Simulated assay, not measured.
Amino acid sequence: MEKKRMDWSALMAFGMVIMALGASLSDAEISCTEALRSLIPCTPFLVGFGSSAPNVVCCIGVQHVFEQANTTATHRDLCQCFQNAASQIGALPERVKELPQFCNIHVTLPLDANVNCSRIK
């Protein structure tokens, strides 16, 4: 029962992060809000609850996000968006980095909290 309560709390926190960051990418091919919505199914994996691998719906969301991110500006904006969201929901850095591997998806930007987003090309 406690585990389900923690999963729900993480999802609620992620939803609030989405709302708070909603207007941050107005000119991007994919907005911060849309990207975060696509990644909601990844929350249990990213914060360390439940399975040790992301589910199929999560991987579909990851693929959607990275298919829509085609410009340097979008990569930089999404980098900052993801860093902020990951920090606010308490995502485990190693899980964030592992996500593309688990989903068998090549990503075009680093998923690392220590990356300087303004230097991404």
Rank of each mutant, 00 (worst) to 15 (best):
M1Y: 04
E2T: 06
K3N: 09
K3Q: 12
K3G: 02
R5F: 01
D7S: 12
W8Y: 12
W8R: 15
S9D: 08
A10Q: 08
M12S: 10
M12T: 10
G15I: 00
I18E: 10
M19G: 10
L21W: 02
G22F: 01
A23D: 11
S26I: 08
D27A: 11
A28Y: 05
A28M: 09
A28V: 03
S31W: 02
E34S: 15
E34F: 01
E34T: 15
E34R: 13
A35V: 06
S38E: 12
S38V: 01
L39N: 05
I40Q: 14
P41T: 06
C42D: 05
C42N: 05
C42W: 04
T43K: 07
V47K: 03
G48I: 05
F49M: 10
F49Y: 10
F49G: 01
G50W: 00
S51Y: 00
S52G: 11
S52T: 11
C58R: 05
C58Q: 04
C59Q: 05
C59R: 04
C59F: 06
I60Y: 11
I60T: 14
H64M: 11
H64R: 15
F66A: 04
Q68D: 09
A69Y: 00
N70D: 11
T71P: 08
T71N: 08
T71Y: 06
T72A: 11
A73Y: 00
H75W: 04
D77H: 09
L78Q: 04
Q80E: 14
N84Y: 05
A85H: 01
S87C: 00
Q88C: 04
G90A: 06
A91F: 04
A91E: 03
L92A: 07
L92D: 09
E94H: 14
R95L: 05
R95A: 15
R95F: 03
V96Y: 03
V96H: 03
K97L: 14
E98C: 13
F102N: 08
V107T: 15
T108E: 09
P110A: 15
P110T: 12
N114V: 01
C117W: 08
R119N: 13
R119Y: 10
I120H: 09
K121F: 09
